[in-house]
């Protein structure tokens, strides 16, 4: 039997350390969408690129006493979501300085292509 194609969902993560309460939701939604067989790509852009730094991911919490952001990132990855981050012009980014959960560093052009091709695009 032929499998029906999974809908592709692109989640633009734009929130960062200045708004911690907003930072876990994109990853939790990505987990749920992946559990519903969607093909999910999380794309860290702008301030959200800081979330890929180990010291931020391990300490930033959406709620006091809650799990750190890395917990939500790992849940999303375990469910099958892909994690990309924006290559920031002029910034020297070493993959070894980022959390291991980042799959790739991507260009703005690749982001634009995904926006055109994916069935759903969310900004969270």
């Amino acid at each position: 039997m032929q499998q029906s194609p999974s809908p592709r969902v692109l989640i633009l993560v734009a929130s960062g350390p200045s708004t911690p309460a907003r930072c876990a939701a994109p990853f939790h939604i990505a987990t749920l969408l992946s559990c519903m067989d969607a093909e999910v790509t999380l794309y860290l852009t702008g301030e959200a690129t800081q979330l890929a730094h180990p010291e931020v991911a391990a300490t930033l919490r959406a709620v006091d006493g809650g799990e750190p952001l890395l917990h939500f990132i790992r849940n999303a990855k375990a469910a099958g979501a892909r994690l990309l981050m924006c290559r920031q012009p002029g910034a020297q980014l070493e993959a070894s300085a980022l959390i291991a959960e980042v799959d790739d560093i991507s260009s703005g052009g690749e982001l634009a292509q995904m926006i055109l091709e994916y069935e759903r695009v969310l900004t969270l």
Binding site: M1, Q3, S4, H28, T31, L32, S34, C35, M36, D37, E67, H71, N75, A79
Partner: peptide
């Protein structure tokens, strides 16, 4: 909905995580 074998028929949310 038509569900194929080994595909998700729903999502279970439990403490701090979720699963197909």
């Amino acid at each position: 909905a038509r569900i194929e074998r080994d595909r998700s028929f729903g999502v279970v949310e439990f403490a701090k995580a979720a699963s197909s």
